[in-house]
Design a binder for these strands. Structure first.
Lengths: 275, 275
DNA sequence: TGAATAGTGTCTGTGAGACAATATTAT
DNA sequence: ATAATATTGTCTCACAGACACTATTCA
């Protein structure tokens, strides 16, 4: 083996092709909350936690639904790729984006060795000026979960996607599970796993960060905010407790929301600078 | 473009070489805690939070220190690669291992496009039967940190590695920072960033999981356990508060530790099954 | 005996869970 | 008037911070 004196010399002769080639994709969990108008004029709009999926029109997994994603370019950072894909799907910028996990099972793509780094993006649907693109659709998320199973139902109004995941405790000190898909008809790749673990991350972050405000419009009522928490966490919260927790994070504005057949509520805003 | 009728047909013709080739490595943050004997016979051994680094003997970054790591093989899961590397470095199995983050800056390796997925491994040094391998060495970690900077000093007894990182708030709702290396002589690649963000993850997990027990021997005193928390978190804890917090996680055994010039202490053990 | 660590008691203030009570609107 | 939501009050209990106190060992 040739002895090199300097790093420059070494790099000049370097043959990158001696290493195994991987492809790299970036897949994005785009989460939001959708409103459903109620018939009863007094009632608040019902909220759903929702995720954006796209329908594949090429092999592999043709005609299955999958997460928006794409191949990372050779001169592009992974996060840049995620931003690019996000821009294409949503047509808006300045979206909350966070890396979640990298999936590297050798068999996860039937074509070749593809590594996928998943990202989570949160958006406020009110910012989506245009209709969502061609093959994309928002699905409301419903989750039934216990210690051993997670059953997910996604519903976009026309189509229902169901899948089931088995959980086995893999490591006790940090309560981490191994997930296995045990039922899945309509989703491509290992995306059921990606979705379930992404949602779990979001739930955790809801509890100890201000992440929820990335899904809220500038002005919102505390009732709406509480609905968003409830629909993502999948449980009811007590009003006074909820208000205590978020009272330092928001500030009241002089705007009011009227129109429901009930007491109007103050509009609040995220208070980003506080101590 | 040819129209395919089935997925099999499509895959048969598929040309993987049309996609950009990436190389993939797995780099591991191997953390532990080391004891330093004190001259004063009464005093407890001083503990240090420590990390395992290896010295590079080839280009690029020849003679610099770096995280144990290596290329992922084409038929190997990323986590399998991490386990393989871990086995080589420590010669023990059943080590706590967790994926942290994937680094994909196009310029992070001068040779070619290399993606690196970092893992965190925690070990109890008492389990290390053999001496650590050839070019590897444990460094005690000392961190000085404020809102804008993180200064790290690593010391293995012979050599001191210092580096400095600038932090700028990137996203306010979840308090995430952008890290930039502003001083670094002795570490290869972007490993200063990998180390700093990995340590930050470990600190967080200490607070809300039982992760610490992966760095402890089977039997330990509460004093030792508290020392480990203190040395990783970088702050003193109050005894009664600490004992309250961990009392449900451990169980007292009938063993005692004697020998110091002070009251003997009970030996405890991690209570993994509880409700 | 005294230095050093082990272990416990207790006071105080904060904050969460739970439930009750009051306020306000459009039909 | 009423259904529905908005908002606040308050009681209790659990727990964290802070400090003090007691216990035990070995050179």
């Amino acid at each position: 083996m040739k002895e090199y004196k300097t790093e420059e010399e070494f790099l000049r002769d370097y043959d990158a092709s001696q290493f195994d080639p991987f492809s790299l994709t970036s897949d994005i969990l785009i989460f939001s909350v959708s409103d459903e108008l109620q018939e009863n004029y007094r009632k608040l709009n019902k909220k759903y936690f929702s995720i954006l999926l796209v329908k594949r029109n090429t092999y592999p997994y043709k005609d299955k639904w999958c997460l928006p994603g794409g191949f990372v370019k050779i001169d592009e950072d992974i996060e840049e790729a995620a931003e690019r894909i996000l821009k294409v799907e949503t047509n808006i910028e300045d979206i909350y984006l966070e890396q979640l996990y990298t999936y590297g099972n050798p068999k996860r793509d039937p074509r070749m060795r593809v590594i996928s780094t998943s990202y989570m993006a949160l958006i406020d649907k009110n910012r989506l000026n245009v209709d969502v693109t061609k093959n994309a659709s928002w699905f409301n998320v419903m989750i039934l979960e216990d210690e051993r199973r997670t059953d997910v139902t996604l519903d976009n109004g026309n189509e229902i996607i169901r899948f089931k995941i088995k959980k086995t405790l893999k490591e006790k000190t940090t309560d981490r599970y191994k997930y296995e898909i045990i039922e899945n008809e309509k989703l491509a790749f290992d995306h059921p796993l990606v979705i379930v673990s992404g949602i779990s991350r979001l739930k955790n972050k809801l509890e100890y960060t201000d992440i929820v405000f990335n899904m809220m419009p500038t002005y919102f009522t505390l009732g709406e905010l509480q609905q968003v928490y409830e629909v993502i966490l999948g449980k009811k919260l007590l009003d006074p407790a909820f208000r205590r927790i978020i009272k330092d994070k928001v500030e009241k504005t002089d705007k009011m929301q009227t129109g429901g057949g009930h007491r109007p509520s103050a509009l609040f805003r995220y208070k980003s600078f506080r101590e």
